[in-house]
């Protein structure tokens, strides 16, 4: 408990420090009239360096003169993004779990495929975003946003595969031998022993995957003209309307979306752990 309290204080402190850092940076830019450390003259003005509180207040203001507030608009866009994230994440979890299970049972599959899975992580796959979005867009049977979801899927597959493989391997050999001595089938051994043993690692991977899925969706959206979502809003505010306050508020919303995705998985983890082991995460 004491450690929890100390950590809470520490986290609050760091967040306060981040706000202070931002305000300090802002003050520096305004005082010198330039950005820092790369001085671009004439950009260090109040419009481009809003106060933290002004950014927060912007959510309550109407956006583009219409009646709708920026907050309401962003909630709508976030809903669109979340749909892509949810579908992409679910697909990625299934594929990653299947691959990890395959690797855990077949040395050959692991030896042949794992290097590619690893190489896939060094490939700047997000560079495919525009290609993928256009390609899926050309298939009429698929909804417009499916390319964006697929991008999320890709980012989820790797951590899930690795987490599944590690988790399944973490089951104690003695338990495996015990079940074998009962003549239990491979299927039973998987679901009765290995998967339960893998739960902590599966959730750890899913948490990484959830935030990665948000990144994938946002990058997908900004490469798909007119795709909307938080990524589309970012692109529009950053480029088309060039409204700094709305841009900052949207970037902050993107961050909150990432935290939300993480939190959902963390809550699911807690529920599962409590249900099956009585352990509190």
């Amino acid at each position: 408990m004491r450690q929890g309290a100390r950590r809470a204080i520490g986290v609050t402190g760091v967040l306060a420090a981040l706000v202070l850092l931002w305000e300090g940076y802002r003050a520096l830019a305004l005082a010198t009239g330039a950005t820092w450390p790369i001085a671009v003259r004439g950009t260090g003005n109040a419009q481009q360096f809003p106060h933290v509180w002004d950014i927060v207040l912007a959510y309550g203001r109407p956006y583009r003169g219409a009646g709708e507030t920026l907050g309401a608009f962003l909630v709508g866009e976030a809903g669109a993004t979340l749909r892509e994230v949810a579908v992409g994440f679910a697909l990625g979890v299934v594929i990653g779990f299947a691959l990890g299970t395959l690797f855990a049972h077949s040395r050959l599959a692991e030896r042949a495929l794992m290097p590619w899975v690893v190489v896939s992580q060094t490939v700047p796959f997000l560079a495919f975003a525009p290609i993928l979005v256009v390609a899926t867009g050309s298939i009429d049977a698929l909804p417009d946003w499916s390319g964006v979801a697929l991008l999320s899927t890709y980012l989820v597959v790797f951590p899930m595969t690795v987490g599944t493989l590690r988790g399944l391997r973490s089951a104690p050999a003695s338990g495996e031998e015990l079940l074998r001595s009962y003549g239990a089938s491979a299927w039973t051994r998987l679901w009765r022993l290995r998967v339960p043993a893998a739960v902590p690692q599966l959730f750890a991977a899913a948490k990484v995957g959830a935030t990665a899925a948000v990144v994938g969706a946002i990058v997908g959206e900004l490469s798909a003209p007119g795709a909307g979502g938080i990524g589309g809003a970012l692109f529009d505010f950053g480029r088309v309307s060039n409204n700094a306050l709305q841009l900052f508020a949207t970037a902050l919303a993107a961050g909150l979306l990432g935290i939300a995705a993480y939190t959902v998985v963390a809550l699911a983890e807690r529920a599962v752990l409590r249900r099956f082991t009585g352990v509190r995460a």
Binding site: Q48, T211, I218, G238, L247, T250, A251, A254, I259
Partner: peptide, 12 residues
């Protein structure tokens, strides 16, 4: 977090 979302800010 989706840090790439800061790209338009740095462009600005």
């Amino acid at each position: 977090l989706p840090i790439v979302a800061t790209a338009p800010i740095f462009n600005l």
